[in-house]
Amino acid sequence: MRRQIATQLALSVISLFLVSALVFWLVDKLPGDTAELVLGQNATEEAVAVLRERLRLDMPLSQRYGLWLGDMLRGDLGDSIVAGRPVIDVIGPRLANSFALALLALAIYVPVGLGLALVTAVNRGRPLDTGISLVVLIGMSVPEFVIAIFLMIGLAVVVPVFPPLALIDQASGFWDTIYMLMLPALSLCVVMTAYAIRLMRESLIQILDSDYVRMAELKGLPPRRVLLRHVLPSALGPALSVTATNVAYLIGSVVLVEMVFNFPGIGRQLIESLVYKDFPVVQAISLILCSIYILANLVAEMAILLLNPRLWSPT
């Protein structure tokens, strides 16, 4: 048990290091001389030389990586080339926006996704289960940007309930913000919910069929009590694991959904910075997103290990 946890932790740390090296190396390979790019074709040689030195472009790659990693670990993300401001100032507000979006998506997903999973498991084999499973299949297969497009067509163009573009910076007040965030959050929810139902249904059925739940039922406990006292505690591990996996999944889909709704979040910032070759911003965002992804996956593994008593091998 302790060894498994140590292995998982070590793997995460190694992955993080490799990711940082990979991100640094790939961004370094992006075409174009950064200094010339920033200053334009007509820049004087002196100006180019000064900027090259500031960006450490004259040093060998490995040395630059070491210095960059040191800066990152100290929380110094460098300066944005395009905006001419510290990276943290550029991505800070974007990160906050994405965080709000992810939070709203999770706030809808946790009750709906996990609740529906329970409904399908309790009603397994009945038409309700079959019906939900069919919707789940569609939600799991169709990519999030296509779901987002369909939601936009349905709920913003054909029946204009929500705004088609999530221009959150123009929102006034809390409820207006929620209103603006609704369509992108729903798009993220569909896929997360589908995935949760698919995975949770199996483990919930296993729990419902287990001896101790049967026992509780045979003792004559009311079904609600069985569900609350016996089923739900056992389902906690799988539920947390699926949710953590979904958070990891959010990393990719948030980029796509933000692009659909022109949402000023971290994902759209990444795409824009890649297009404008704003390397420090790309590096910082990639590293942040990869860290969240690795951390979420670590939590998913840990949840399975820590919340399942059967895996607590005596050591």
């Binding site: 793997l11 995460s12 992955s15 990711v19 990979l22 990891a248 990393i251 990719g252 980029v255 796509l256 990444l270 795409i271 890649l274 990639s286 997103l289 990869c290 992804y293 690795i294 996956n297």
Partner: peptide
């Protein structure tokens, strides 16, 4: 352990 979309981009 690396998010596929980020590495592909």
């Amino acid at each position: 352990a690396i998010p596929p979309l980020i590495i592909a981009l």
